[in-house]
Each structure stands twice: as structure tokens, then as C-alpha cells.
Amino acid sequence: MLVVEHLTKVYEDGTIALKDVNFTVEDGEFLVIIGLSGSGKSTLLRCINRLIQPTEGRILWNGVDITQANDAEMRRIRREIGMIFQHFNLVERSSVLTNVLTGRLGYLPSWWSLVNFFPQSEKRRAMQALERVGIADKAHNRADALSGGQKQRVGIARALMQDPKIILADEPVASLDPVLAHSILGYLEKLNQEHDITVLCSLHYLDLVQRYATKVIGLRDGRVVYEGTRENIRNITDEEFKHIYGQEAQRLSVGG
């Protein structure tokens, strides 16, 4: 269970990215965070695995306060939290297999990396992860030779290497064709339902949200302005919509 309490992030230049954010994520949930660009979605996700250091508040992950963890504890916590990114964040010049293997680094001794060593068992695990996302045949290609959708699948495989209990997905389909969006979110849904991995995902398109979310929170200017279940979001009113996205916003569909 993930509990976020009074989370506030003020950047060094004084920008208030998050302001007193509170919510709870039960195990096995598919929580979608919606909101405009700049509403604090990315900051919120990055505070959870402390890629960004929160200014105030607590984040309890199964009872442990992530914000107070020291380096060694943080390493243990982070390897339980997978993350996938809008721009995939692959090492373009490395092979797909290496990219996937790096997902396992949190479990491996630091100095092995000096000689670029991964045990055979990990390589098998990486191949299995690639099979699960359906691109095992590309394992020895360079990452920059892949298409956008394939890259995101490598990103998912990399997260899978961590044996994650939870996956943070920062706008995972925003750089992809709408058709591919369902494919990628489908993988996430499968992981969520079949492997009981909690998913925290930020999304733009409302119909995607309605299709995949079990719970939704809406952010605006760093504050939670909407909280709803799957049922709520399917019947979202124009008023609620404009409350999240502002008065000028129009609903937009990606089709499918």
C-alpha cells in the first residue's frame, strides 16, 4: 500500500510543483493521474521513487517512509518500484538486451558493472521479459534501431526485470501513435491484473483513462482537485472536466 501524505515540492527557483497532496493507493490498483502539462504529474511520480526529493510530507510504502530512507534503504525500495517514461529513456547506443538487463542493477553488486558482467541467469530472465512484451527477436539490435512502440516495450521489459511491486508510468503513451497506446497500456493492464502489480500512470486522453483506470486523481497547479473511481470517471461531468482542465478545455478522443 502506498500512502502519500501532505506531499509538497517547491523547486529551487520557487516554483510550487506540488501542494499538500494526499492520496492512498491500494495494492493491485491501476491509478491514473490526470491533469494539464505542468500540473505536477511528473513531479509527483518522481517524488515516489525520490528521483526528486520532496520538500515536505511523507510517502509510506508498506509502512516505510520513503522520504527518510538512506542510500542503502533507497536502493532496496527503488528496486521494488519499476518506472517507465514518456521518452522511454533507453540507452540508444546499447543493445536491447543490455537495456533490459540494466533493470536488474538494483540487485547486483556494484563492482560487477566495472567488468560489464551479468550472470547467465539474469540474461535468461531478460530474454523472458522480452518475450513477455513480444520483442525477443530484437534482443541483439541496438536500441536506436527500434520504433517508438518497440522502445516502450523494452522500457516495460526493463521495469519487469526489477520484479516490481508497483510500476510508475510517466505518460507512457504520450510519444506514441494512438493505436500503439492501447497496445502499451494493454501490457500494463495485463501486468496489473495477472501479476498483481500496482500501476501509477499519468495519462492525457480521457477515453484511455476511462478504459484502463480503476481509480483516478486529477491534479491542477500541484493540488489534487479530483478523486474518483472507475465508475466516477466514466460518468465525468463537463463541470468536473473543466475543473480539472480549465474553462477552455475541450474533450478529445483518440478513438478506439
Binding site: 521513487n49 536502493r75 527503488r78 519499476g82 518506472m83 540507452v91 540494466t102 558493472s113
Partner: peptide, 28 residues
């Protein structure tokens, strides 16, 4: 590109591991 560094930090990689697998391939 800072993206891979971020991605590797998120997996729990140490600083050394991050440098070897996210920085070195890019600067070679």
C-alpha cells in the same frame, strides 16, 4: 541525454552502475 541516468537511478542502480551503463555508452 539525462533520460537513461534517470531510468537507471529509478531501478536502484548505484552511482557506479549508473555511470557504467547510462553515461559511458553515450560518451564513448
Amino acid at each position: 541525454d539525462p533520460g537513461p541516468i534517470e531510468a537507471l537511478q529509478a531501478t536502484g542502480a548505484t552511482r557506479l552502475q549508473t555511470i557504467v551503463y547510462a553515461v559511458v555508452p553515450q560518451v564513448l
